[in-house]
């Protein structure tokens, strides 16, 4: 899932851009980027347990914010490191809903090294939109 870190946005914290063909894949790309900011070897997170996550929002960027925040919540509240395997987005008149299938393993079982403890997703420069060529792009700054 494509992403890149953007050092020029912030010195104290970590910024990344992610892109994908669809908003669903973009949430997965951004989740991969978040994990890569937290871990030196995110590919080593094994799918030993599964979680279903549901987040809703009135706008896509807020949906992304809440989807990413779930990763931090599961890490702290349940001691789990997860990757997003599948994302489904539904729109109703009132809101946008993301249903996410996550899989991962307990923090203690992770066989790689931790890098930075990401504290929070921020709204600073937060963007999720489709560009002129139809590609979905997101910018996220996380508090590290």
């Amino acid at each position: 899932m494509p992403y890149r870190f953007v050092p020029e946005i912030t010195r104290a914290d970590i910024a990344f851009e992610a892109w994908a063909e669809s908003p669903e894949e973009l949430i997965r790309s951004a989740a991969d980027a978040l994990l890569a900011a937290m871990l030196t070897a995110p590919a080593r997170v094994r799918a030993r347990c599964r979680r279903r996550i549901r987040v809703t929002a009135g706008a896509l960027d807020l949906l992304l914010y809440r989807a990413l925040e779930e990763i931090l919540f599961l890490r702290d509240a349940d001691g789990l490191l997860v990757r997003y395997r599948r994302v489904e987005i539904r729109r109703t008149k009132e809101e946008i809903e993301a249903r996410i299938e996550a899989a991962g393993e307990p923090v203690e079982a992770y066989r790689g090294e931790f890098a930075t403890e990401i504290k929070a997703i921020t709204f600073h420069e937060l963007r999720m939109a489709q560009d002129a060529r139809g590609l979905w792009r997101a910018t996220v700054v996380v508090d590290a």
Binding site: T10, R11, A12, D13, F123, H124
Partner: peptide, 9 residues
């Protein structure tokens, strides 16, 4: 000080 998000650190 250095840049953060919103307020500078």
């Amino acid at each position: 000080g250095h840049s953060g998000y919103g307020f500078p650190i």
